[in-house]
C-alpha cells in the first residue's frame, strides 16, 4: 500500500482532482455504455414479446369472428 491513510489516498499527492476526474469519468462512460447496451437489449425483447402477444390476440379475435 502506497498510502498511509484514506485522506492521503484521496488527495493523490495533490493531484487528486485530476486523477479522480479521469477515473470517475472513465467509470461513468464505461457504466453508461454497458447499461445502455443492456437496456437496449431488454427493450428489444420486450417489444418482440409485445408483438407476439398482439399477434396472438389478433388470431384469437379472428377465430371468434369465425365462430
Amino acid at each position: 500500500m502506497q498510502f498511509e491513510s484514506l485522506n492521503e489516498f484521496l488527495a493523490m499527492g495533490g493531484y487528486g482532482f485530476y486523477v479522480w476526474l479521469s477515473f470517475g469519468s472513465c467509470a461513468a462512460i464505461l457504466l453508461a455504455l454497458f447499461f445502455s447496451s443492456l437496456r437496449d437489449g431488454s427493450k428489444l425483447r420486450h417489444e418482440v414479446r409485445a408483438q407476439m402477444k398482439r399477434e396472438e390476440r389478433i388470431k384469437k379475435a379472428k377465430q371468434q369472428e369465425q365462430v
Partner: peptide, 28 residues
C-alpha cells in the same frame, strides 16, 4: 488493475501520483 494501479503501484518519481491516470489512459 484499478486497485493495484491506484493504491499499490509506486508513485512516479517525476510525475508523482498524477501518473496513475496512465492506467486508464493507455488502455483506452
Amino acid at each position: 488493475g484499478w486497485v493495484w494501479g491506484l493504491a499499490y503501484a509506486p508513485a512516479d518519481y517525476q510525475q508523482k501520483d498524477s501518473y496513475r491516470i496512465i492506467f486508464i489512459h493507455v488502455p483506452s
